[in-house]
Amino acid sequence: MVPFALGGIAIFVVAGVILLLTGARDSWLWTCLAGVICGIPGLITMLVHDAHRRTRRALTHPEFTVTDPA
């Protein structure tokens, strides 16, 4: 689900930039800003949940290995 959240945030950013450049109404710009601001906590929540899920799975299934992507 993380790629969908990133994609949604990116779409709001791109739409906001386009609307800013075309001189659209302020309400549309605020809508794009709200989409980005609401998307960031959702993205963080999903990342934390995925990290906890990997840890829980490693504890309950020893054959499962947790690899650090960094």
Rank of each mutant, 00 (worst) to 15 (best):
M1I: 12
V2F: 05
V2E: 11
V2K: 08
P3R: 11
P3H: 07
P3M: 09
P3G: 08
P3Y: 06
F4C: 07
F4A: 15
F4H: 13
F4T: 14
A5I: 15
A5D: 13
L6S: 05
G7E: 14
G7A: 14
G7T: 14
G7I: 12
G8L: 06
G8R: 03
I11D: 08
I11V: 14
F12K: 09
F12Y: 13
V13F: 09
V13M: 11
V13P: 00
A15Q: 10
G16A: 08
G16Q: 07
V17G: 04
V17C: 10
V17F: 12
V17R: 08
I18L: 14
I18M: 10
L19A: 09
L19M: 10
L19I: 03
L19V: 01
L21P: 00
T22H: 10
G23S: 07
G23W: 01
G23R: 00
G23T: 01
G23H: 06
A24H: 07
R25Q: 11
R25P: 02
R25K: 13
R25C: 00
D26K: 03
L29K: 03
L29T: 02
L29D: 01
W30S: 02
W30Q: 10
W30V: 03
T31W: 02
T31R: 10
C32A: 09
C32P: 01
L33D: 01
L33N: 02
L33R: 06
A34R: 01
A34L: 15
A34D: 00
G35A: 04
G35W: 03
V36N: 04
V36Y: 01
V36C: 04
I37T: 12
I37R: 01
I37Q: 02
I37C: 05
C38Y: 07
G39C: 05
G39R: 02
G39I: 02
I40W: 02
I40Q: 04
I40G: 03
P41Q: 05
P41T: 08
G42H: 01
G42Y: 05
G42T: 07
G42D: 01
I44N: 03
I44V: 15
I44R: 04
I44E: 00
T45L: 13
L47D: 01
L47Q: 11
L47E: 06
V48Y: 07
V48H: 06
H49Y: 11
H49V: 12
A51M: 11
A51N: 06
A51V: 11
H52E: 11
H52M: 12
H52A: 09
R53G: 01
R54F: 11
R56S: 09
R57Y: 08
R57T: 15
R57F: 09
A58M: 13
A58N: 06
L59A: 15
L59W: 11
T60V: 14
T60I: 15
T60H: 07
T60P: 00
T60K: 12
H61M: 10
H61A: 12
H61P: 00
H61C: 10
P62E: 11
P62C: 11
P62T: 13
E63D: 15
E63Q: 15
E63S: 14
E63M: 09
T65M: 12
T65C: 05
T65A: 13
T65F: 05
V66C: 06
T67R: 11
D68M: 07
D68T: 10
D68Q: 09
P69S: 05
P69E: 10
P69N: 09
P69Q: 06
A70H: 13
A70K: 14
A70E: 15
